[in-house]
């Protein structure tokens, strides 16, 4: 697995409206290359929209998103695995390579990416034979096989059971440390954000209302008092935001 540099991102005064409804209000952000940033917020706060604007999947209504790497090197992981049921596991991973995935090099790269997520030996299986956690691992391999400089994750573990989730979190941390891409994780789980991120952003009603760096040493342990204190503090801010948003 080659270690590549992560993308640096700069957002200046990014706004987004759907019709007359404003979703993002002038977001300024600078994201360091190779960092792991978690974006949290209640549902409907605009966190997924922010991710899509950063990836260029939605045009911004105003402001600019600048990146030192081109869009082809950004990859997105959805909440659902979204595997092609009619393609083998290896062919699904090769989707991440585009046209390159059709050749023998592509097949070899797909197998390597599967090995990196601990799915050696599943290459020729159909997705329908895999468990939910295994399918999301295939989706992770599909995203990583092209060595992205930016990996965006839109609540990727939300549909998994608690145990599989913790396994996936440590897998995610390991591949991030090994590959060095910039990671943007949208999640509603504060514990997940604190366990993985260098920096937690809280989005409320289209604004960044908290920008919290996390200095805890890795690997992080959930039972740790510092971990729990930080998680509690962020959760409180999140709940406050929900209450004030609800009363508006």
């Amino acid at each position: 697995m080659s270690k590549n540099n992560g993308a640096a991102l700069t957002l200046s005064q990014v706004t987004k409206r759907f019709g007359d409804t404003p979703v993002l209000h002038g977001i300024d952000l600078s994201i360091a290359p190779g960092s792991f940033v978690a974006i949290i917020g209640k549902s409907g706060c605009g966190k997924s929209t922010l991710l899509r604007v950063i990836l260029g999947l939605e045009p911004a209504s105003g402001g600019s998103v600048a990146s030192d790497s081109d869009a082809a090197h950004a990859r997105l992981i959805f909440q659902e695995p979204r595997l092609l049921p009619w393609a083998s596991v290896a062919a699904n991973v090769a989707v991440g390579l585009g046209e390159r995935g059709d050749g023998p090099d592509g097949a070899a790269a797909a197998r390597q990416a599967l090995a990196d997520v601990g799915l050696t030996g599943k290459a020729d299986d159909w997705p329908s034979t895999l468990s939910g956690g295994q399918r999301q691992r295939v989706a992770l391999a599909r995203a990583l096989v092209s060595n992205p400089t930016l990996l965006a994750l839109d609540e990727p573990l939300g549909a998994l059971d608690a145990l599989t989730r913790i396994e996936m979190q440590s897998l995610l941390e390991n591949v991030w440390q090994a590959q060095g891409f910039t990671a943007l994780l949208v999640t509603h789980d504060v514990g997940e954000a604190v366990a993985l991120a260098d920096r937690v952003l809280l989005i409320d009603a289209g604004r960044v209302t908290l920008d919290q760096p996390i200095y805890l040493p890795r690997p992080r342990r959930r039972g740790d008092p510092a971990f729990a204190a930080l998680e509690g503090a962020i959760l409180e801010r999140l709940l406050d935001a929900s209450v004030s948003a609800g009363s508006r």
């Binding site: 990836l55 082809a72 959805f78 979204r82 989707v95 991440g96 585009g98 599909r142």
Partner: peptide, 15 residues
Amino acid sequence: QLIEMGRVYGMSPRR
């Protein structure tokens, strides 16, 4: 969702 995935992963209309 699969069509969106294909687009996001850079598939041409033909592909």
